[in-house]
Amino acid sequence: MLKGLGNLGDMAKMMKSAQEMQGKMAELQEQMEQMEVTGESGAGLVKATATVKGELKALDIDPSIFDPNEKEVVEDLILAAIKDAQGRAQTKMQEEMSRMAESLGLPPGMNLPF
């Protein structure tokens, strides 16, 4: 198409590739807003669900842990479940970004801007 224009043909090809990558990255960001992970603590007595982007969506607490004398334990379990969900979200995000980079032919370890 741009034959005979030297490096301009390469530039057009690079611009097209950059636009495709930008579109794929936008799509991945939208998908990550919908993907959810669940972290838990206390052998599943407390569960926190968050999006891969880190937004806390739900908290599920087994009623058996509600003992007024154990308030601090319950608070610790809640925090631990939230931290677990956040850690899982971060791991999932990194996995998805690596998958995206690989599909774009980028070298391993190259960080995408999220």
Rank of each mutant, 00 (worst) to 15 (best):
E96H: 10
T38C: 05
L45V: 09
K47M: 05
S64C: 09
M93P: 04
V73D: 05
Q34V: 10
P68R: 13
I82W: 04
L79Q: 07
M93G: 10
A80M: 07
F66T: 04
E70K: 13
S41R: 10
I78A: 08
E72Y: 04
A80S: 15
M93A: 15
E102P: 07
A48Q: 11
L79H: 03
K47C: 04
L104V: 11
L56V: 08
P63Y: 01
K92M: 14
G87L: 00
V46L: 06
Q94K: 15
S64D: 12
S98R: 14
L59W: 12
E70A: 14
S64L: 09
P68Q: 13
K53Q: 11
Q86N: 12
M93Q: 14
E75S: 09
T51G: 15
E75C: 02
L79N: 08
D62R: 06
M35G: 03
D76W: 01
A58I: 05
D67C: 05
K47P: 04
A58R: 09
T49R: 00
A58W: 07
A58V: 07
L104A: 15
D67R: 13
P68S: 11
L59S: 13
Q90I: 12
G87H: 03
K47V: 00
M97A: 14
K71F: 02
G54H: 06
V37A: 04
F66W: 11
L56I: 10
A81D: 09
V74F: 00
Q94D: 15
E96N: 12
L59T: 12
T91Q: 14
K57P: 07
R88H: 02
V74W: 00
G87A: 04
E75M: 07
V52Y: 03
I65E: 00
V52A: 15
D76N: 07
G39I: 01
D67K: 13
E72G: 02
A81V: 11
T51Y: 06
L104M: 15
L56P: 09
K71N: 05
I61N: 02
D67G: 03
V46R: 07
E75Y: 05
V73M: 15
I78H: 02
G42H: 09
T91K: 14
D62V: 08
P68D: 12
M97H: 04
G39W: 05
E40K: 03
D84R: 02
G39D: 02
R99E: 13
A101W: 14
I82M: 14
I78F: 07
S98H: 14
T49Y: 00
G54K: 01
D76F: 03
S64I: 12
V74N: 01
D84Y: 00
G44F: 09
G44L: 09
K83H: 13
L79W: 05
A48M: 07
Q34A: 11
Q86E: 15
R88D: 00
K71W: 01
E72P: 04
D62W: 06
K71Y: 02
R99Y: 07
S41A: 13
K53S: 08
R99Q: 13
T91C: 00
E40T: 01
A43I: 12
D84P: 00
E72V: 02
D60M: 13
